[in-house]
């Protein structure tokens, strides 16, 4: 990602980054979402300008509605800092347009790459090992936190150095990584179904002295048949109208209670 010439980040720029990293999410609200955190982070840049009118103009721009993936946001902040350093407060309109233009595409990529996929992979491994009684895999979260911080810092520098055109370039690169990460994630999900969903058929047929348990029959068809059916059921229910994850949670609790008491599941 790096080219030969090094970025010379200003003192204010560095502050902007760390303010976002540590405190950018504090002021999250329904109206402007990350707008307050974005303004808070950009304050050192705003105060760099001498003219109070310029400051106010920029402050208002930075306080506007903003919402993107918080790992990807530093790219936009880097671009923002670079523009302010180049053209000063006259660029307020440009900055406003850039922020709105970039936050959408970056949110999509970032949520998948830095949230859904790591949560799936690390979460699966950590949960599975936790159920086996080992906390060891929790360290993966901490390693991921460090990796993410490293990425954010690089995103910020890249945005500062390359300006707005970085977005399409980094977007292309991250798309490839996302596709590869999807493969890993989906393989793990496949392995999770038989590993963590526990359901066993309880019913037994008996004719006189012969008795056959449904579970034995099921095992002959496919190991983990019951867990697979339950996953299909949850998947199917989620796709129905008027269903959301909360309702499916409650539904599964009811199904579990019924299945036990009707002697379907053990």
């Amino acid at each position: 990602m790096s080219k030969e010439n090094k970025v010379v980040m200003t003192k204010e720029g560095k502050k902007v980054f760390w303010r976002w990293y540590f405190l950018g999410g504090c002021g999250w609200n329904y109206e402007k979402m990350q707008g307050l955190g974005y303004y808070f982070s950009m304050l050192p840049m705003i105060k760099k300008h001498q003219n109070p009118d310029d400051q106010k103009k920029l402050a208002k721009t930075e306080l506007q509605f903003f919402n993107t993936n918080n790992t990807m946001a530093p790219i936009i902040m880097g671009v923002d800092c670079a523009i302010q350093d180049e053209t000063g407060a006259d660029s307020a309109d440009t900055i406003a347009a850039l922020k709105t233009g970039m936050m959408g595409p970056l949110a999509g990529i970032g949520d998948t790459l830095f949230h859904v996929i790591p949560s799936t992979i690390i979460g699966s491994i950590a949960s599975y090992m936790a159920l086996e009684g080992s906390p060891l895999a929790l360290i993966l979260w901490i390693l991921f936190g460090l990796f993410r911080a490293f990425c954010m810092k690089n995103f910020f520098n890249l945005g500062y150095k390359e300006g707005a055109r970085i977005v399409s370039e980094i977007g292309n690169r991250l798309k490839k990584i996302t596709q590869a990460a999807n493969i890993l994630g989906i393989t793990v999900i496949g392995a999770l179904i038989p590993s963590v969903v526990s359901a066993k058929f309880a019913y037994e047929f008996s004719w006189g002295e012969v008795s056959i348990s449904i579970q034995q029959l099921a095992d002959q068809i496919m190991p983990s048949l019951a867990p697979t059916l339950v996953v299909f059921f949850a998947y199917w229910m989620l796709g129905r109208k008027k269903m959301n994850s909360t309702r499916v949670t409650l539904l599964l609790v009811v199904v579990g209670i019924l299945a036990y008491n009707l002697k379907i599941f053990a």
Binding site: T120, N182, I189, V197, V230, L252, I257, Y260
Partner: peptide
Amino acid sequence: NGLKTAGGILPSLGIAILLRYLPV
């Protein structure tokens, strides 16, 4: 006991959500 069985099948929800979200 019913709740115990329910606890066993609940992880299917997290898996199902992912199956809907990721390009499966």
